[in-house]
Simulated assay, not measured.
Amino acid sequence: MENRRSRGMVPLLALHAAYEFYRLERKPPVTAGLIVANTLIYLRPKFLDAILPNLDEVWFNPHLILKHKDLKRFLLSAFYHLNESHLVYNMMSLLWKGVQLESSMGSVEFASMVATLLGMSQGITLVLAKSLLFFDYEKAYFREYAVGFSGVLFAMKVVLNSQTDDYTYVHGLVVPARHAAWVELILIQMIVPGVSFLGHLGGILAGILYLRLKRSYRGPDPLTTIIRGLTGVLSWPSRLARSLFGFRRRQISGRGTTGVSRRGRSFSGAWRCTACTFDNTQLNVCEMCGTERDVPVLSPIRPSSRSGNLSLEELRLRRIERFGR
């Protein structure tokens, strides 16, 4: 299968995505990776063309999946798109939803959620198509061909809007955010009758099921734990390299210096603690050791090799008594 050439929509998607990621203080890597993966699969560059299956091999078809137990169709069909507009529309939606969800959940949990929603939405769609055989809908759904990330996007929409009571726009209509996915399901089916109604419905039901399972299960998400473990293993070489060759930053605690005067600044209101020689600013209690100030009147600090009238031995003994060492 030859690689596709963009008609201009994919570069616009790339520019828009780059602009959105540039504005973000924390870049969501999983969302970016999903957008890049879907786009590369659609464009099929030469270095991937020999590896990627053809579209005919990955169509989501309930009849073929159940007949041949075809996991390739079950999993990969979500990452294939029919045309450029199909791809760009889905990726723009993924960019909007993914940035918000990944920023609030964290990358590891977000990756776990996407993987879970992918399997659940595809599985529910398969079950629905099989169930409709009892109502003589075999031709319409059980043997239907579909591809695209829409099912996962509908599930993500349910998760994203589950915690808000606000209103949102769906194709020009103002609706409660919690019901936006259902309204969009109906409107898209009316506007574009050829889309996979069952796939979108499966995505909505997957989102609802995911939320119910998450609320009922208090323990750690097993898939999240696995992903976090794999991430830790993969990042181990870089952590080792940083520990071996990296430079540690100097850490300074407190707001003053110990034992020496500061140059180039005026400290007319500062005083030096007679116990630990810490240069304090305004408080009448030493910020370092807690010793009360001896002289009630503020006096400027003058460079001195000694601290008050204390000898070095007395100063050492006071430090040992104060800090226990």
Rank of each mutant, 00 (worst) to 15 (best):
M190N: 03
I188T: 14
L209Y: 04
G254C: 04
S235F: 04
Q251S: 09
P220S: 11
T164Y: 02
R263P: 06
R250T: 15
E138T: 09
R143D: 08
D221C: 09
A180I: 11
L205P: 02
D221L: 03
A177I: 12
M156Y: 00
L132W: 05
R262K: 13
A206E: 02
T168D: 09
Q189S: 15
R263L: 15
I188P: 00
G172V: 12
I252P: 00
V233S: 05
G123N: 08
L173K: 13
R249K: 12
R239F: 00
L213S: 06
A140F: 02
T225R: 06
F149R: 03
Q163P: 00
I208Y: 03
S235G: 00
L240K: 10
F142N: 03
K139Y: 03
R255A: 13
L205V: 12
I226A: 09
R249V: 07
R255H: 13
T224Q: 13
V175A: 08
S196M: 06
R218S: 12
L128T: 10
H200W: 01
K139P: 00
R143W: 10
Q189E: 13
L234Y: 08
S131K: 10
V195I: 15
F247N: 11
V170T: 07
V170M: 08
Q122R: 15
T224I: 01
L234W: 05
F154H: 01
P237L: 05
R143S: 10
S131R: 12
T231F: 07
V127T: 13
I124R: 02
I226Y: 03
S121H: 09
R250C: 12
L185M: 15
L187Q: 14
G123D: 09
H179Q: 13
T257D: 08
Q189I: 12
Y210C: 04
P176W: 09
I252Q: 09
I204Y: 01
R262T: 15
R262C: 11
Y169M: 14
I208G: 01
L187G: 05
M156T: 01
R262A: 13
Y210N: 05
G207V: 09
S162P: 04
R228C: 01
Y169C: 09
Y169A: 07
F245K: 11
L160C: 05
I186T: 14
A181T: 11
W236R: 09
Q163V: 10
D166Q: 14
L230N: 01
L234S: 04
S235H: 01
G199F: 07
P222V: 06
Q189M: 13
F134H: 09
S243E: 03
G148I: 05
I226W: 04
I208M: 08
L185D: 06
E184H: 13
G194K: 14
R212C: 10
S261E: 13
V175E: 03
L128I: 15
K139F: 06
I186C: 06
P237R: 07
Q163K: 10
L153C: 04
A177L: 10
R242I: 07
L133W: 09
S253K: 02
G172D: 06
L153M: 06
L160H: 11
Q251A: 12
K139H: 04
G264A: 12
H200R: 15
G232S: 08
F134N: 11
R250N: 12
G254L: 07
